[in-house]
Amino acid sequence: MAISLDASIERFAVRGAFTIARGAKTHVDVVLAQVSDGRHIGRGEGTAIYYHGDTAELALAAILAQRGAIAAGAARPDLLGLMPAGAARNALDAALWDLEAKQAGRRVWQMLGLPRPQPMLTAFTISLGDASAMATAAHGARGRELLKVKLGGSDGTDGDIERMKAVRMAAPDARLIVDANEAWGAADIARTAAALALLGVELIEQPVPAGQDAVLDGVRSAVPLAADESCQTRASLDEIVGRYSHINIKLDKAGGLTEALALVHAARMRGLGVMTGCMLCTSLGIAPAFHVAMQGQYADLDGPLLIEDRADGLRFEHSDVWPPEAQLWG
């Protein structure tokens, strides 16, 4: 049965502003891939990783370049082998999974042999700002069980410690993880981690720039460290062992659900914990990631809460995200 392929770029506004160490965003452009057998339609979404030099326009072109292979009947594993990891492959991989599930009359979790998905605790992001602004945001997020706090201010780790003190005072009962977004460099990570441990921080993401992970050799951190930008695909893992205790899997980095599932298995074999994260994206981008997150220790799947989401989006209640319904994906 012949398969057709189409793709487009869609823009979604950010609620307020999303600010990290690299800057602020007011909108996000995602690439939408759709594959059809004439009866069923499979959809997938990807967000270009801008710090890799990717754009929605480049991702769109990369997807459309596969029209010939799709029409010729290329199998999903073979097709994905033609594309590098990134938003384009992620969107196309998700669309193909969605189509295959619809053709089989099954859900993706059944095809993967996973248990029936249940609502899952997800982190809620507090954007980078001054201590007062972040305290206000944390106070507004009271009642959410797990907060992910963006750090990496221009005033260094001392400023970040003050930010976290303000957040802790504003949200005394919340669990806390932090993301430095590569901004600490060769700072005194052990001293900073010790201060954050006293505030109840459970996990520190990517304290140093990717490629400079050797500065962590011999560091005794009071808070476990997670690799984000330093962990792209399975090829990254050997550089992570001994430096980080966890990895952050994002489908746009890994290049889709297929590679992300393999990455979960490879991480487990190396004794690494797993957080499943996301770029700014809609619920369609989160839906396949849910199947990875249900196998890990932390989920950071709040992307749709930070933007004006799709009308058929995921259900978020209190601190939980609910599994995708079939009309959305999979």
Rank of each mutant, 00 (worst) to 15 (best):
A222S: 15
I247P: 01
P324R: 13
I249P: 04
R270M: 08
A235K: 12
L251H: 10
D302Y: 11
G313D: 02
A210D: 05
P304L: 05
A254N: 09
A289P: 04
M279F: 00
M294A: 09
L216W: 09
E229S: 09
V215T: 14
H265R: 15
H291P: 10
L280I: 01
L251Y: 02
P323Q: 13
E229H: 06
A227R: 02
C281N: 15
Q295N: 06
L306G: 13
P324A: 10
P304N: 06
S230N: 07
D217T: 13
R315I: 12
M269W: 04
G273P: 06
Q232K: 13
V223M: 00
A299F: 03
F290A: 02
V321M: 11
Q232P: 00
G277Y: 05
S230P: 04
A287E: 11
G256K: 06
V321W: 11
A266P: 04
L263N: 03
R270C: 07
P304G: 05
Y298M: 04
L263K: 05
Y244G: 06
A293M: 08
D213C: 06
S245I: 03
I286P: 03
L272H: 00
G242E: 08
P224N: 11
L257Q: 09
S230V: 07
G271Q: 02
A293N: 09
D213P: 02
S319A: 15
Q297C: 07
T233I: 01
P323S: 13
G211N: 05
